[in-house]
Write a protein that binds this DNA or RNA. Structure first.
Lengths: 160, 160
DNA sequence: TATTGTTATACTCTATAACTATA
DNA sequence: TATAGTTATAGAGTATAACAATA
């Protein structure tokens, strides 16, 4: 059974290996490094939850934010994601091409578009949120409930 | 004062904004999302510590690992970083071009190269490790010492 | 003047695939 | 056959710069 000529996988699909017998030096004391490893681990959970739909973490973030803030414009969306306006454009195009999001003219600002989930988008995003949240909790099940809450608290404190 | 025509900044240089008044929906309950935000915040610390040298987090990881494991080969290095062999190649080329790392033939395996820091590389990496560790701690100073330890513990538990 | 959307363009990172030398 | 290194190529993500329309 040959794999089909699938072009590219979006990212790494394996956790960052902890190579046995190797000396990691100062890395083990850096929050930055541990954060990166934990993030890759959680990305696997995300990937398991969104398999095959082509929804990456930034796209998921965008969909959730559009759903929770109907009429948000592309510049603000870019700010939320920490990307440039041109990138937010590409995102909106991608969603629109799939019929998940539509652009409607702002009533009070002729420059801006408001982004809205379509009915189809609503359904899809609702299901996706459930799956992503479930997988996120499943992967974090190595932590106790108290540990999970504490981790969330510390991360948010750190992110400022 | 115009900025020089500097080509590209390697990544985002601002924290992911928390846009006031916006509803973040389910994102606030996801470890994955909080991890991402915390990671970006810590990347800023890293960037402050390595300003102008062109050393990105993967490059820093590679340098530390080569320094702590002299003679490591490129394939293993790739495994440590979670990237393909071809990417490890490019890394080694980049270091070698700067005279920080040299390739020496393995004695017992004619296929492999062993990677070693040059004296210049040793000096540079030692200084860089100090600065990165100091900035990492400085940025994490919003946490108490106990909180920092606890965060590290939870992250490592999560990363598996 | 500043901001929104838009387009064109460029760069970084990393993957895949094919090849060679060696094991 | 399997693995290390190498090279060529391609794609995703995102930045900058410029422009038109609107504020």
């Amino acid at each position: 059974m040959k794999r089909p000529p699938s072009p590219h996988r979006p990212r790494t699909l394996a956790p960052i290996a902890r190579v046995p017998g190797l000396d990691y030096g100062v890395l083990d004391e850096l929050l930055g490094y541990s954060l990166r490893r934990a993030q890759v681990a959680m990305f696997l959970a995300f990937h398991a939850a969104t398999r095959g739909v082509g929804v990456t973490p930034p796209r998921f973030t965008a969909l959730v934010v559009i759903g929770a803030n109907p009429g948000i414009n592309q510049s603000v969306l870019g700010r939320v994601l920490g990307i440039a306006r041109s990138g937010a454009m590409a995102l909106a195009d991608w969603f629109e091409a799939r019929g998940w999001v539509e652009r409607r003219r702002h009533l009070d600002d002729g420059r801006a578009w408001g982004l809205h989930l379509t009915p189809r988008g609503e359904t899809l995003v609702a299901a996706m949120k459930r799956r992503v949240a479930a997988e996120d909790r499943r992967r974090a099940a190595v932590l106790g409930a108290g540990e999970r809450r504490e981790l969330l608290r510390l991360l948010n404190k750190l992110a400022g």
